[in-house]
């Protein structure tokens, strides 16, 4: 009984006391829990007294010092997101060396490198970085030869990044990759003319490919026809020998030869488009027909 009573009292005390102690510790900045890709900036009397960007549990009295206990009353804790962020600037206007009005699309990624600088050195660090990338793009990429603008994006990306990176570091930003994602013409008439040229060129190329294909087909066809003609001629030449030889073999038995030809003749008569008249073999009419040589298809009557 005593054990159960002690158990329940302990349980209830733990349920109430543990969150209470934890909350008080957190409120009075006895400890701080820092999440992944997050930084805590601790301020006291308007000064930054510590920055923690390692994820985990930190006892502030050991990390910053005993004066951490005063942060709740005379200071503040600011949280800064350290995750990678991206931005895309569309159609930044530049002119090529030849004077062509071009538009550049720049994509860049950045993350906070120095939380204290990010918070206090610039009221709008993102806006400044955006303006800086925009300015660097226009300055670095203007007056480049048009061919380089259209072809060499890696080099252009590197130039913009080299230009922007030192300034972004001063505002607490660490600039990541910079990509020139799009280079396009801004003048509608020029775009139309280029499209027309591309279409014409494609037509020429398509026509040339079609003609080349037709030529190759003609060559192959003529070659195949020549080979086929030779093969047909050869086959025609050997036909009498082969057929005659086969018939000679069949003729070893006269009765078989006779039967074969009777069957074949009957089949030809059945397949042919002729008018058939069946006449008894020994009849007078048959003899008359034989003497007159009438052009009438006749077959011997079945025996």
């Amino acid at each position: 009984m005593t054990f159960l009573l002690a158990f329940f009292i302990t349980l209830i005390v733990c349920i109430i006391l543990v969150p209470l102690v934890t909350g008080l510790g957190k409120f009075f900045c006895l400890f701080a829990i820092v999440q992944e890709c997050e930084a805590h900036v601790f301020l006291l009397f308007g000064r930054v007294i510590g920055v923690i960007d390692d994820p985990g549990l930190h006892l502030l009295a050991f990390k910053i010092g005993p004066h951490a206990l005063l942060i709740r009353f005379f200071g503040a804790v600011r949280r800064v997101d350290l995750r990678l962020d991206q931005e895309y600037l569309r159609s930044e206007p530049v002119n090529s060396e030849e004077g062509t009005p071009m538009g550049i699309g720049v994509w860049y990624e950045m993350r906070v490198g120095s939380p204290a600088d990010y918070l206090f050195r610039n009221t709008d660090p993102r806006g400044s970085l955006r303006a800086n990338v925009r300015n660097a793009t226009v300055r670095c990429l203007s007056n480049m030869p048009l061919q380089n603008l259209l072809e060499d994006r890696h080099k252009m990306s590197r130039r913009v990044r080299e230009e922007v990176s030192p300034k972004s570091e001063a505002w607490g930003f660490h600039l990541g990759s910079v990509y020139i994602r799009k280079v396009h013409f801004r003048d509608d008439q020029m775009i139309h003319q280029i499209e027309q040229k591309v279409v014409n060129r494609l037509r020429q190329v398509t026509s040339a490919i079609r003609q080349q294909g037709a030529n190759q087909v003609a060559i192959i066809k003529s070659g195949a026809e020549r080979t086929a003609a030779a093969e047909f001629a050869h086959a025609a030449a050997v036909r009498p020998y082969l057929v005659g030889k086969a018939i000679q073999e069949i003729a070893m038995d006269k009765e078989i030869l006779e039967a074969v030809f009777q069957i074949l003749e009957t089949e030809k008569m059945l397949d042919g488009d002729v008018d058939l008249a069946l006449v008894p073999r020994e009849s007078l009419f048959a003899r008359l027909l034989a003497t007159q040589g009438a052009a009438l298809g006749a077959a011997p009557a079945p025996q």
Binding site: I263, M269, L270, A277, L278, P280, F285, P302
Partner: peptide, 21 residues
């Protein structure tokens, strides 16, 4: 063989336009 040949020629009766008996 003669029987078979006669059987083959039976089809001629189907195709014949005229048969004189």
């Amino acid at each position: 063989i003669p029987g078979y040949l006669r059987n083959v020629r039976l089809d001629l009766y189907k195709r014949a336009k005229r048969i004189i008996l």
